[in-house]
Nucleic acid binder design. Structure first.
Lengths: 230, 230
DNA sequence: TCAGAATGTGAGCTATCACTCGTTTTGGCT
DNA sequence: AGCCAAAACGAGTGATAGCTCACATTCTGA
């Protein structure tokens, strides 16, 4: 990657609808290439080609490759945040629900959210760390989500084991995200949507020290293979 | 990244000690640059320079940049696996210990392991996905760890809630790894080593449905956290 | 001692990258 | 109709990447 010089942070903002379409096409193409070919193959020339615009048009609206990816990351994070709030926020106001139901609903929302554009999310999470501007964009949003979880923990504190809300937020958000990612990336056949939600609910409630009956599902499938231990 | 043509999968293996030293220097330099400058700055030329050998020597032992990084990943994974077994494997044989103690010991080992070369681990995890050969190397090792966890779950099945060992292994390994990574990458001040181990132990035991007293930490001492079940 | 294999060298080739310059096209306005 | 800024264009620039080639040096063993 040559010619790494300081660049102005932003460029023109589109006013005509034609220009808006161009910007949109560029972002769309960026996402598409990132997902299908990875970050390394996502050159500005390739993006422009796929978007059906010239390379100079790209640079008219994005001051650098970093800025381009950062813009995409920001858009993605913003969308996700909005979707999550829509799925969870309103439902949360509909009255006092059981702890377990609330947790399950939130987790369902998370899983569904990630399923939305899993591949893009994955690539952004993996490659974006080398682009500070994009890190900032994603962090800004995920911090807001973290705050919501933390507030929820504090509001339900009496029903949970003694814990530090900040620490617990870290642990919960991280582990739920990680397991969700795993399922989206590897799609292990044992982990379908319902199982995933169920297990994550167990994980969260267990961690929070909420007692639970062993559930109605009679698991324990036919004693799979290995009992043998040293 | 130019000249992307098919390359032979492997090259010469060193026989003289001089050559072994060269290979070692190259791998060392790769790790050093990856950690200090990141993957993007880790060019083969830079590696050769840092290692104090010529480019051609590098290509005598590694058929491509991918192969180089893959070799490093493999070495790293192998080392980790060995260390983990050393820390945990023997201790596991020392007789029947409490479930909680076993879990805590394993988690301690995991956390310590990651702390060993956290930066390298982080970079490898982030960049390796674009290098299939390296993915294979890391997966091979982590699968073996997964098998161990799974076997353990099955051996202790009677003390746990009903669960599918395969699914539970996924959930546990993934979430513990993720939280550990987080702590290494961001080093949030609330999450020191002891707290991390303690919280992860909670996470695992809670998920496994193992009852636990609220521990000796103060804050609402006897208030039997969560009986509340709608 | 000395041939040949193993090892080490660095200038240089080519493809590709991020990005610019000078120019042309478009479309909203009077 | 016709002006003009916004928008779009694409060949071209300098830099650097991964990698090879032709050759030099060192080691082994008979």
């Amino acid at each position: 990657m040559p010619t790494r010089r300081a660049r102005p942070p932003s460029r023109k903002t589109p006013t005509q609808s034609r220009a808006k379409a161009t910007v949109d096409a560029i972002l769309r193409a960026t996402a598409h290439i990132l997902k299908s070919e990875g970050f390394a193959a996502c050159s500005t020339n390739a993006v422009a080609r796929k978007a059906g615009v010239s390379i100079s048009s790209l640079y008219q609206y994005f001051s650098s490759k970093e800025a381009l990816v950062a813009a995409l990351a920001e858009q993605h994070a913003e969308n996700g945040q909005a979707l999550l709030l829509e799925m969870v926020g309103l439902a949360a106001l509909e009255g006092p629900t059981s702890l377990e139901a609330q947790v399950r609903r939130y987790i369902e929302a998370m899983v569904r959210l990630h399923a939305g554009d899993a591949e893009l999310h994955r690539v952004l999470m993996q490659q974006v760390p080398s682009i500070p501007e994009a890190v900032a964009a994603v962090n800004r949003v995920s911090n807001r989500s973290g705050d919501a979880v933390r507030a929820w923990l504090e509001s339900r504190r009496d029903e949970l084991r003694p814990l530090d809300p900040a620490v617990a937020t870290y642990v919960l958000v991280t582990s739920v995200e990680a397991v969700t990612h795993l399922q989206l990336m590897e799609r292990p056949k044992q982990l379908d949507f319902d199982t995933l939600v169920e297990e994550l609910t167990w994980l969260v409630l267990g961690y929070l020290g909420v007692a639970r009956r062993p559930a109605a599902r009679r698991r324990r499938p036919p004693a799979t293979s290995g009992f043998a231990r040293h």
